Each structure stands twice: as structure tokens, then as C-alpha cells.
Simulated assay, not measured.
Amino acid sequence: MKTRRQMKIQEIINNQVIHTQEELAELLRKAGFDVTQATVSRDIKEMGLIKVPTSEDDYRYAVPGTAQPLSTPDRLKRRLRETVVTVNDSENLVVLRTIPGNAQALASLIDHSNWEEVIGTVAGDDTILLVVKPAGAVPGVRERIAKLMQ
């Protein structure tokens, strides 16, 4: 049952813009699945679904790697200003702490901004780890983030 439900979730988010867990739960119920918001939340976590920006200045659920989020410099600048709480670094890593629930969307914007020094990001709920190469580029990355947040 869980596998069928998660396959249906993937089908729904690939074919429709889903903004909230409640929307997804309602569509699953209409498709014949008896689900609660908590069940949908667990499925989203297990499936590794992320929220990506839409053209309407909003966010939708997506399977990692399938969505093409808009990554304009203005959008990145705004999201950094609105969601970043702290910036710290160690060796070749930069850690951004965000308001809860914003790390994955912001990490996606950073990933699609093609910063040569950032070879990848890892995001949780409120923390983003930027892997920087070479380590000597960390001050430049921090400076870029600081400028964008002004």
C-alpha cells in the first residue's frame, strides 16, 4: 500500500503544482487513499521531495533533479535576505542557518546559480552546507553572500 501511495504521490507532483501537504493529502484521498497529513509528511520525507520556486513567486513540491527552478539573481538575493539567520564557515565549508522550512529551496537556488567555487550543497530543514573548492575560496563565497544579503 505504501509503495502504491508513494507512486501516486510522485505521479501527482509530476503532473500538478502542489504547494502544501494538505493539497497533496486531499488529492490522494480523491484517488482512494486513506491518508492523514502526518502520513503524507512521512512519505514526503522518505521520498526526499523538495520544494522549488515557481514562476508565481511561490513554491511547489518536486522530485530532486526533475524540476528546473528559476534562479534569477534577484530571487536568490531576496531569499537570502528573507531566510538566512547566520553564516559560518570551517575549512572548505560554509554553513547557512535559515528560518525553519527554507533551507532546501534556498540550496536549490544556490545550486542553480552556478557559483564555480561551490561544488555542491546539502540542505536540511533549516541548515545548508555549501562545499567550497578550493578552501581558499571560502572568504569570497562569504563575501558574495554578505553582498547579496545587503
Score class of each variant (00 low, 15 high):
10 Q>I: 11
18 I>E: 10
27 L>Q: 15
61 Y>D: 04
37 Q>G: 14
97 R>E: 14
34 D>S: 12
91 E>K: 09
51 K>C: 03
133 K>D: 08
6 Q>N: 05
139 P>L: 03
107 A>S: 12
90 S>F: 11
63 V>K: 02
94 V>G: 01
142 R>L: 11
126 D>R: 09
96 L>V: 11
78 R>S: 05
90 S>H: 14
112 H>V: 00
102 N>G: 10
47 M>H: 01
7 M>F: 05
1 M>G: 13
12 I>V: 14
98 T>M: 00
64 P>C: 04
91 E>L: 09
116 E>Y: 05
34 D>M: 13
28 L>K: 06
37 Q>C: 15
115 W>Q: 01
94 V>T: 02
107 A>Y: 08
87 V>W: 12
32 G>M: 02
64 P>S: 02
75 R>K: 00
149 M>V: 11
105 A>Q: 06
24 L>E: 02
22 E>I: 06
70 L>W: 03
83 T>M: 09
32 G>Q: 01
137 A>S: 08
141 V>K: 04
9 I>L: 07
44 I>A: 02
5 R>S: 03
86 T>I: 09
38 A>T: 07
100 P>M: 01
21 Q>D: 14
73 P>T: 03
84 V>M: 12
115 W>T: 02
121 T>G: 09
148 L>I: 07
45 K>R: 15
97 R>C: 06
32 G>R: 01
60 R>A: 07
144 R>A: 12
89 D>F: 14
118 V>N: 04
16 Q>M: 15
131 V>G: 07
90 S>W: 08
47 M>E: 02
28 L>P: 00
134 P>Y: 10
99 I>A: 13
28 L>G: 02
96 L>T: 07
40 V>T: 01
84 V>T: 12
69 P>D: 01
42 R>P: 04
72 T>D: 00
61 Y>N: 02
23 E>W: 07
11 E>H: 09
12 I>R: 12
128 I>K: 06
129 L>Y: 08
147 K>A: 04
122 V>H: 13
128 I>L: 05
31 A>V: 05
18 I>N: 10
106 L>Q: 02
77 K>S: 10
4 R>T: 09
20 T>S: 13
126 D>V: 04
90 S>V: 13
60 R>I: 04
138 V>M: 03
49 L>W: 06
114 N>A: 06
106 L>V: 02
6 Q>K: 08
21 Q>F: 09
93 L>W: 11
72 T>S: 00
134 P>M: 07
97 R>T: 11
76 L>K: 00
8 K>E: 15
80 L>W: 07
49 L>M: 08
142 R>I: 15
106 L>W: 05
112 H>E: 12
30 K>H: 11
143 E>A: 15
1 M>V: 07
134 P>L: 07
132 V>M: 06
130 L>G: 09
137 A>N: 06
69 P>G: 00
83 T>S: 15
60 R>E: 06
49 L>S: 05
85 V>Q: 14
56 E>H: 01
141 V>R: 05
118 V>G: 04
66 T>G: 03
35 V>W: 05
79 R>W: 10
93 L>T: 07
122 V>E: 13
21 Q>N: 15
133 K>A: 11
93 L>Q: 08
22 E>H: 11
47 M>N: 00
83 T>P: 04
104 Q>P: 10
50 I>Q: 10
56 E>K: 08
17 V>T: 15
46 E>C: 12
81 R>V: 06
124 G>H: 04
27 L>V: 10
127 T>A: 14
40 V>Y: 03
41 S>N: 11
95 V>M: 14
108 S>W: 07
67 A>G: 03
58 D>S: 09
